[in-house]
Design a protein around this nucleic acid. Structure first.
Length: 683
DNA sequence: CGTGGCCGGCTTTTT
DNA sequence: GCCGGCCACG
């Protein structure tokens, strides 16, 4: 017996308590599938019904998808004016806040860029080039960025940063961190961490600002609270500090973002941060049949770390036993998932009821092949985001450069793309010249002909680049159609010609051009809304925080996603792929590299498995391969089953082995037959 | 000095 | 199978 999302159902007593709770702090410990979203949305609706103005409500989530869904459901429950509530991710809230308060930050017009990871990496790379002795050592910029991010979220300022003893990357970080912060400010850019940390800093340092925002938001709600980090905790405390009407919802068993600085202690010790907290536990599971639930309970009860004591209670029938499937190799595993899905679809299951979950995005490819083979429509969540695709980022870099003359990183990205004769030496010279005059790179590009030592060839290139950007910039200022301006850039620099030439195959070129067109189409759809520098700038800021899959309705298709990406979702049928040591738990967790920030947490891997299992409503398949070709390794390397499978209660399990069968290839057919024979012999 | 071709290492997870 | 870095050529 399941409730349809958004349709009021009879609440159980605990849910009722959480929904009806009045002022004062509350912690809702909501087990997987216990109706958490229902509670949070109904609670907001109830607050509005009782007279709280929607604009006095702030609800923060971790993903845009969760935010969108929450908004949709609240509007359905409480009517259209509910849309005035502030509902979004922590980062989206930070962006909104910083735009409004930008005057206090010294950016009166609110024009700043948001740097994603690729941009951040660019900044660090650039800094490393100038650090003596670092240029030749090929440092992993991600490792440095991870350390900077960790320090910042704990509010360790550059001067106070002290690396752990023997942490070589920490030593480099000590040098890079202060320069990184200076560079961001010089570029008028904020990174993801800034959106939260700068918000906190401003709220802490300015009493008037803090009071204003505290006054505005009389109720603060946080979803997935177990995944908050220190900075986010500070933000919640600041905003809720005045009235303590803070309601957080979460499940410590589903804490899977420790690697990003999330601290489970936040949810374990919530009542220490907010005195007089009421705790409500939701342990009745409405999602999964009992077989799935028993497996989930077995897995999570075996965990060793500290956790809130709770156990999911089944409300649904036993259902079908959980299928434990061993493929002869990775292809066989993927083919099984494809074949079984096809069988279920033929029995009447809808594609959207199926999800395949894996630890790492690299596992998706094999599954994609199998689904294509079975003609099953699917969407791949995660992996490279739309706006991160090179061709899209290139065009965005042109737009950003035209909007923000101080955005050196965007300018560097396109300064010689497509090639226009400005090589590394010329770029260095331009950068030196700009630095010597304390001006941004664009200033040097503009006056290239006057810069000594710059070849006429390079100066010519600068002239061409400057012309394109200047035209775009003027047209933006004149509020012309952003889509036509973007198209002007594309043709002005012959981007499509370069895409055609630079892609290995026609298929790749077509795909890239398709992405570019999709971006232009997106601009066109919003053309009138995006006219003018501020509107387009705001759009680009938001877009950096969005992923492709947040907005589009996927339609009736199966879902392939990482386990991280599956959090908060549910599916009738779930395949978990790659349940092997090295994949889940991931090898990186088993033996850490020198570049890792801190020792990895096996408990988090277990919780990942738990999250994966609890996505399933009716059918769950736990899949692995007996052998698998590791990256560049030997073909038939034997694999060890994931240690977590040992905690799965056997009475709820049914096992089977499968071999690959590819009619297309004689060899694999023979291999498959051999496997079948071997299996028969064994039995 | 710039470009294009070739080689090697690789993102675990995401706002 | 892809991006960033290195080398030889124009």
């Amino acid at each position: 017996m399941r409730y349809a999302p958004g349709v009021p159902m009879a609440l159980n007593p605990e849910q009722q308590q959480a929904v009806e709770h009045g002022p004062g702090p509350m912690l809702v410990l909501a087990g997987a599938g216990s109706g958490k979203t229902t509670v949070i949305t109904q609670r907001i609706a109830r607050l509005i019904e009782r007279g709280t103005p929607p604009r006095a409500i702030l609800a923060m989530t971790f993903t845009n998808k969760a935010a969108n869904e929450m908004l949709e459901r609240i509007v359905r429950l409480a009517g259209h004016r509910a849309a005035e509530a502030t509902i979004g991710t922590f980062h989206a809230f930070g962006l909104k806040f910083l735009r409004i308060e930008s005057k206090a930050l010294g950016i009166p017009d609110g024009r700043f860029a948001i740097f994603d990871q690729a941009d951040q990496a660019g900044v660090v790379r650039e800094i490393l080039r100038t650090v003596r002795g670092a240029a030749d050592r090929r440092y992993d910029v991600w490792a440095i960025l991870a350390r900077i991010s960790k320090a910042r979220n704990e509010f360790v300022v550059p001067d106070a940063y002290e690396p752990r003893l023997g942490d070589e990357y920490g030593e480099v970080t000590k040098i890079v961190y202060p320069r990184y912060m200076k560079a961001l400010r010089a570029f008028r850019a904020f990174d993801f961490d800034d959106l939260v940390c700068e918000t906190v800093t401003l709220l802490e340092s300015r009493d008037d600002v803090r009071e204003r925002w505290q006054e505005r938001y009389r109720y603060v709600l946080v979803d997935e609270y177990q995944d908050t980090n220190h900075a986010q905790l500070r933000l919640v405390r600041l905003l809720g500090g005045g009235h303590s009407n803070v309601c957080v919802v979460g499940d410590d068993d589903q804490a899977i973002y420790g690697w990003r600085g999330a601290d489970v202690a936040n949810i374990l010790e919530f009542d220490q941060h907010f005195a007089g907290t009421r705790v409500v536990k939701l342990e009745r599971n409405y999602r999964s049949c009992r077989a799935v639930l028993e497996v989930a309970n077995g897995v999570i009860q075996a965990s060793e770390g500290k956790r809130h004591d709770k156990r999911l209670v089944a409300t649904r029938p036993d259902g079908q036993k959980v299928q434990m499937v061993v493929g002869e190799n990775g292809e066989a595993e993927a083919q099984f998932i494809g074949n079984e899905s096809r069988r279920l679809l033929d029995e009447g299951l809808k594609p959207r009821d199926i999800a395949v979950l894996f630890r790492s995005a690299t596992q998706a490819e094999a599954i994609e092949t199998a689904f294509k083979g079975q003609q099953i429509p699917y969407r791949l969540v995660g992996g490279t985001q739309f706006y991160e695709k090179k061709e899209v980022k290139d065009l965005i870099a042109y737009l950003r450069a035209a909007l923000n003359p101080r955005d050196d990183i965007s300018l560097r990205r396109i300064i010689n793309y497509p090639a226009r004769g400005i090589g590394d030496v010329a770029v260095e010279r331009l950068a030196q010249h700009a630095l010597a005059n304390s001006k941004p790179l664009s200033w040097a590009v503009e006056r290239a002909p006057t810069i000594p030592g710059l070849s006429p060839h390079a100066a010519n290139g600068c002239k061409a680049l400057h012309a394109v950007i200047e035209i775009a910039s003027r047209r933006f200022a004149a509020s012309e159609s952003p889509c036509s301006i973007a198209k002007g850039i594309v043709s002005g620099v012959r981007l499509e010609t370069d895409i055609a030439a630079g892609s290995g195959s026609n298929a790749v070129a077509a795909r890239r051009k398709g992405n570019l067109d999709a971006f232009l189409a997106m601009l066109e759809r919003n053309d009138d809304k995006l006219r003018g520098v501020d509107a387009l700038g705001g759009f680009l800021q938001m877009m950096t925080l969005q992923s492709e899959t947040d907005s589009d309705d996927p339609g009736n298709v199966a879902t392939l996603t990482t386990i991280h990406g599956s959090k908060g979702l549910e599916f009738d049928t779930v395949f978990v792929a790659g349940l092997e040591e090295g994949l889940l738990p991931h090898a990186r967790t088993l033996d850490a590299k020198a570049s890792d920030v801190e020792p990895q947490d096996l408990g988090e891997e277990r919780r990942l498995f738990y999250v994966a299992v609890t996505r399933a409503m009716n059918r769950l398949y736990l899949c692995r391969a007996r052998t698998r070709q590791a990256r560049g390794g030997p073909k038939g390397a034997a694999r060890t089953p994931s240690r977590f499978l040992a905690d799965v209660p056997p009475e709820w399990i049914e096992s089977r082995a499968v071999t690959g069968f590819q009619p297309a290839s004689m060899k694999s057919m023979l291999d498959g037959l051999a496997g079948v024979l071997a299996a028969i012999e064994k039995a």
